[in-house]
Design a protein around this nucleic acid. Structure first.
Lengths: 202, 202
DNA sequence: GCGTTACCGTAACGTACGTTACGACAGGGA
DNA sequence: TCCCTGTCGTAACGTACGTTACGGTAACGC
């Protein structure tokens, strides 16, 4: 066979371009032509790498999940105690750095797309439940004395809070600043007792 | 002039149809033709009532705000204590009745649209800040001893939680059931002291 | 009753979309 | 070297969109 270019790298670049366009132009601006232009190629190449638009969307969605998962892993691994790990994981999921703010916009875009696309909806549910599981595990580590049901409900509540901070930050960063997010998160974590609130730098 | 039909009623029906289509087909499915079909008329009539698609979107967005505001007013007025009012307002904003679940989907659609449309974004910010103000006032009524800054941060946190419950319910009603929402909300309200948690029926 | 005026359905226009077909080109195997 | 297979840019197709122009129609003022 001839000129076997790096397909994996191409898929990655294209889905990153998808992401970039989605963050900048929103869901209506996400067209194959815009993605191709952003990636520096043509729509022909895009549809040679992905079967159709949905395949591109799905891959970009998986990429988003992969990145958030890796960052959560890193935050969790760097923490010294379960309480700090829980706080770090939640904070990085909601923190509005410039890069994260772009991710929040992309997240909202995929959420809206998922409302009309069963495949994306299934992905979204799976990824979110995985995140809930992660948080539930950390909650259980912080409060081993709690029954499983309490850990579960606490986890869903914390995830909902983070999700809400995410979406609200995407549309109104002025009201939902980084400081406001931290305060809201620490207030929720205070319910877990002093162990979770025990953090050095704030 | 001739046959002065009820323009106000027409605008209301059309924006309701916009809403209905948005809930059912999502943002990509929201076309003038779909709205016209749902409203039982033609695109010509739609564009005689509204100047263009964005005007229709704006009106539908205002209608959504109006309905949520009215329901919040009702919940607040029916409560006997400030604590119960706060809980009722937050619960009705997050509660996944069938009608409310449709509203949650519409809300997400408008949110995604606002990310690419400055006019809708401005509306969204204003309406959300108004809701935060409402919640802040209720928090201050429940805890008059708290400084304003604490009431403010508590309000933003509660709104973020409700918003997160809303979006997550829209995409995954199984995980975020009505019961799960109530538990998460009551857990957050418990931070305000026993006054807010004091509710008769649950 | 008739002219006028507003209303709204019909039909078309231009554009942009996702997708497809085709041709040029470049790298291995004989 | 020649062929052959895979790659990707080009160009077009059909469709659906937002929007506009136009004509018929029904109600008021006189």
């Amino acid at each position: 066979m001839a000129s076997r270019r790096d397909r994996v790298d191409q898929r990655l670049r294209l889905s990153a371009a998808t992401w970039s366009v989605l963050a900048e132009r929103g869901l209506p601006g996400l067209t194959l032509r815009a993605v191709a232009e952003r990636a520096g190629c043509t729509t022909g190449m895009v549809l040679h790498t992905f079967a159709d638009k949905q395949a591109l969307l799905v891959h970009a969605r998986e990429l988003l999940h992969q990145r958030t998962g890796q960052r959560a892993d890193a935050a969790q691994a760097a923490a010294e105690t379960p309480g700090m790990a829980l706080r770090a994981v939640l904070l990085q999921a909601a923190a509005p750095t410039a890069e994260r703010q772009e991710e929040a916009r992309v997240w909202v875009g995929f959420l809206a797309a998922a409302l009309a696309d069963p495949v994306l909806a299934e992905l979204h549910r799976n990824y979110n439940r995985r995140f809930v599981d992660r948080v539930r595990g950390l909650v259980a580590a912080v409060r081993p004395d709690w029954p499983a049901a309490d850990c579960s409900s606490t986890a869903t509540g914390l995830v909902a809070l983070v999700e809400g901070l995410n979406t609200l930050t995407a549309i109104d960063p002025a009201t939902y600043s980084r400081a406001a997010q931290r305060v809201a998160l620490d207030a929720a974590l205070a319910r877990l007792g002093p162990a979770a609130a025990d953090h050095p730098s704030g």
